[in-house]
Amino acid sequence: MKSIFRQVGLIGKYHAAVPAGVAAASRAALEDIAHFLSGQGCEVAVERETASSFGLVGHAVLDLQALGAACDLVVVVGGDGTMLGVGRQLAHHGVPLVGINQGRLGFITDIPLDGYATVLPPMLAGQYAEDFRTLMHARVVRDGHCVFDALAMNDVVVNRGATSGMVELRVEVDGHFVANQRADGLIVASPTGSTAYALSAGGPMLHPGNPGWVMVPIAPHTLSNRPLVLPDHVEIAIELVSGRDASANFDMQSLASLLHGDRITVRRSQHRVRFLHPRGWTWFDTLRKKLHWNEGA
């Protein structure tokens, strides 16, 4: 089968400090995947930091944005955190992403590393399932001015300080007052992020086809404060009323320290992340496998 994707980008996980043996195994895996893609008729370009970190040679090297602009497909080798970062940064290019799982869970990097040589050829030939994921556009507004701006694929989280008590948050949806909530924090999650921190805090799992957000309080003072499912066309505003050392996290990657009166606004981004999965893939298969359903007696 001949690949319909001519220019394919390759990105590996390189940020975390790992033992030398693990790094060597990662380098060998990336070299094997690059060689495999070339054998499928693809012109391979390696992301610059990946090439530098692992000493990969023999292929074109491009920085991340140039890779997104030039490639027909990007293959990401790593875990969900790696894919989240790549997805946020390349969404505006519209380039499809394929994830080969070298992490632990693999909710969005769903091709096993030891099975890519079997799974990828039909996908490269056009036999794949397409999956679009919405992004959240979040801003921190202080005294009428935006002091922080970020995209998130999983969630936006307002947290209390590590050694302080609860925070009090004023919550509005499309300018309508919802409630003042006292809690350890508040999570606003996309369907993609509904199986991450929001799930551990008691929120529901949202099918990625649902155009909605889930808003989940973290350890609320009032137990009747329950998760809310909202349409994703609304704007959610969270104002820090009281609490020390509070912060806002965006996919747990970027961090903004908050002052009293700061407002965190969350709305749907104009960009979406485009994933490709093996033909026949379903979200339910992922849940069953990753959450170990149907196991045991």
Rank of each mutant, 00 (worst) to 15 (best):
H15K: 11
A17E: 13
A17F: 05
P19E: 07
A24L: 14
A25S: 11
R27A: 02
L30V: 14
L30W: 06
R48K: 10
R48I: 09
T50N: 00
T50W: 03
G58C: 04
L62T: 02
L67M: 02
A69M: 10
C71E: 01
L73K: 05
V76A: 12
V77C: 14
T82A: 07
V98M: 03
R104Y: 04
D114A: 06
T118C: 04
V119A: 06
L120Q: 01
Q127S: 15
D131E: 15
F132D: 10
L135K: 13
L135V: 14
H137T: 04
D143M: 10
H145G: 00
H145Y: 05
V147T: 06
M153V: 06
N159L: 14
M166T: 15
V167H: 03
L169Y: 04
R170H: 10
V171W: 15
G175I: 10
H176T: 07
F177E: 01
V178D: 03
A179T: 09
N180D: 15
Q181K: 07
P204E: 14
L206A: 13
H207R: 00
P217W: 04
P217H: 06
L223W: 14
N225G: 00
R226W: 09
R226I: 02
L228S: 00
L228G: 03
D232F: 15
H233M: 01
A237K: 11
S242I: 00
G243T: 08
A248S: 09
N249D: 07
L258A: 07
T265R: 02
H271D: 15
H271I: 09
F275I: 02
H277N: 08
T282C: 02
F284V: 11
D285R: 01
T286E: 09
L287V: 14
L287A: 03
H292K: 05
